[in-house]
């Protein structure tokens, strides 16, 4: 006798397949809706202090960097950006924002020093020297004397610096920028927004800069 097909079994498999499709669609919908809501609530990096910008504001490539001065990858990113800036000064516009990571013991203090340097119009020299000497201070228990030394080297007014470092407004600027970064979905540093598109890490930065500006000219 031929084996009869089993309609309840077929029905059950059909139901199971339908349920699977439904569950997958629900998962996708849930993630998409949450991400849309998050995107609606936070729209791109907000305006940044003019003291922490470099280059022509009308340049075709605008980069906003969220930096933690203690992070080694950020230091490598700064070296790369400096090379690109030297090669294409008219095509790059840089803005720096603070994103001190909790795991880095000097990150907050660095950001405060940098903000105070910015308020004296010396952000970039301070930033460059701070990053160049990262290996000298990142392992120290107390890095304050080195920060003071860097401040003196770039010509910061000591008295203004002392007052600035204890200023609550400076702390809140850093906190606000970090919160703004978190709202944009930043989890680690360095994170760059190149013409409002997000890139994390120097590998992505390099590949995007190569696409937009080309290879770095070889140094003589």
């Amino acid at each position: 006798m031929p084996k009869a097909s089993n309609p309840p079994a077929k029905n059950a498999i059909q139901k199971k397949q339908n349920t699977t499709v439904l569950i997958v669609i629900l998962c996708i919908l849930l993630i998409v809706i949450i991400n849309l809501l998050k995107g609606y609530l936070s729209q791109g990096p907000k305006d940044v202090s003019r003291m922490r910008t470099k280059g022509d504001p009308n340049a075709p490539v605008k980069i906003v960097e969220y930096i933690d001065f203690q992070c080694p990858a950020c230091a490598r990113g700064v070296a790369m950006l400096n090379q690109y800036y030297a090669a294409y000064p008219k095509k790059l516009y840089l803005q720096m924002k603070y994103f001190p990571l909790d795991g880095h013991q000097h990150a907050q203090l660095c950001a405060r020093y940098a903000e105070c340097a910015a308020r004296q119009g010396k952000f970039w020299p301070f930033h460059d020297l701070l990053i160049a000497r990262q290996n000298d201070w990142k392992g120290l228990i107390n890095a304050d004397p080195i920060f003071q030394e860097i401040g003196t080297a770039v010509g910061l007014d000591k008295l203004k610096l002392e007052v600035c470092l204890t200023n609550d407004e400076v702390k809140s600027v850093i906190l606000r920028e970090k919160e703004n970064g978190v709202a944009l979905g930043i989890q680690s540093t360095p994170t760059y927004f190149i013409n409002d598109q997000m890139f994390v890490g120097i590998k992505s930065l390099e590949s995007e800069l190569k696409t937009r500006l080309g290879e770095l000219p070889s140094m003589p």
Binding site: I31, I34, N35, K38, L184, G185, I186, Q187, S188, T191, M198, F199, V200, G201, K203, S204
Partner: peptide, 14 residues
């Protein structure tokens, strides 16, 4: 999935 995919891309690149 709730954060930009670039964060995870950075992890993979590392």
């Amino acid at each position: 999935l709730l954060f930009p995919y670039q964060n995870f891309l950075y992890v993979i690149q590392n």
